[in-house]
Design a protein around this nucleic acid. Sequence first.
DNA 1: GCCGTTTTCGGCCCGACTGTTTTCAGTCG
Length: 535
Amino acid sequence: MTTKDLARMLGETADLMEVLGESGFRVSAYRKAARALERYEGELPELMAAGFDRLPGIGKGLAGALAEIVQTGEFDYLEELRGQVPPGVAELFMVQGLGPKRIRALWQAGIDSLEELVRAAEEGRIAAMPGFGKKTQQTFLEAARFALANLRRVHLPVGLEAARLLLADLERAGVYAALAGSLRRRLETAGNVDLVARAAPEAVLTALGEHAIEVRGSVVHGRLEGLPLRVFCAGEREFGTVLLRATGSEAWVRALGALPAGPDEAAVFAALGREPVPPCWREPEHLGLAPPARLVERRDLVGLVHLHTAYSDGSASLRTMAEAAIAEGYAYMVVTDHSQTAAYAGGLTLEDLERQWAEIDALNAELAPFRILKGIESDILPDGSLDYPDEVLARFDVVLGSLHSHFHLPPEEQTARLLRAVANPYLTVLAHPTGRLLLRRKGAEADWERVLARAAELGKIVEINANPWRLDLDWRRALAWRERLVFSIGPDAHAPEGYADVAYGLWMAQKVGLPPERVANTWPAERWLTLREGV
DNA sequence: GCCGTTTTCGGCCCGACTGTTTTCAGTCG
């Protein structure tokens, strides 16, 4: 249990309360408390000891409830609400643009699942409801289909955590097992968990306890928090072969031809007369491509690029973020708080910027040789311009440009907007280019080939956003540009803990096949500054 | 449900966007 888990439970409680018609300020009190927990930087036990009501937005009532959740692992009130809302109705929250109010209205009209929503929209029944119209119907139809396709999938960290728990269970029972499947290949979302065990199926069945369902041949099937689970059981002599096959991807393994038996993967590759291929490079998209000689790794990275502080919507001070970066061995960091238009995220006015720059200068004097570069995450406005006048833009060391709104422009307009932003001489990095949220929101539609070609031509850097809910630019698209573009891995951290997300960005960079020299985080800070010359 | 007092209630709450409206409700970042 973490503070994030508690935040999620309170958030879900608020959603369900609202669907059930509980109105107003009680609901927003739950939301506010959830946000406070989300933002909390420390460890749960400390907070528990000090009392939850030390956080703003949490009072006596919720503090008591939270303490009970931590002790018992359960939240009675949430369970009660879940009992009143059909699971299909709760799934409607996955539809982009659908919130508690409209979900309530749909439910009252008898629409109680994603399937039913799709059917109703197809039959034109949504448009007939008061407060809904033709356009809303079309939007929800598309969003509901998207949600339906993603319903049984989870984000990479969620899948990895599930696998970690299972592997721990197996280890406790004395069963050696290894991660396989798409999670081992670090695909950005997972639809199941695959493991390979060096043991008999019966032993695995026992070790998995309540997660196991049945044994079919040498495979133990199970389920974990909604995710299908498969454990492939192998003897010692063919463990490597089974692991290779269970890791996939199916198409990539098939292309290897008949697989010889081997105790580990290295032996199987050797018997095939091939160099070992890392799991991240085994997607169908990699067929026919030579694995890169040297992939970028954590030890190659010297700079953190793209992080927020309490000046905008981060939760930690500039100093805290800098000290955490030093502790993790980085030589520099590029601070990129939000720009002025991003009011929801506390975007920085010129006055804020002056204060931040003064603090950066002082910290740089104190923390040298560590260096903080003055950056900004500038909204790309609907017309493609950046969010400050040129004389302000000229004062940044690094300018990230990001889409945060107007994701639904017609593709030609979106392309023009992005082309204009990329061509802005002050722009250094095109950050989370499409604005997608995995399993939640498709990104902006544009002619990406043109946009990326322009970026390559002008020497602009393109971000691989490392937040596991984004991982944007998509590695598949980046793959085609791996020899023509330079990428940066952006943790998009809002607290020191966010630095850990760099791992996800690295995995995506490895799927793209990037060597260190194609990743701008491996550059010394001075090289970033040369990008500004001539402006 | 929280908070902060004009101490035991009454006010909480940002701004833009979208689609539905004809003045606003719902959602989102």
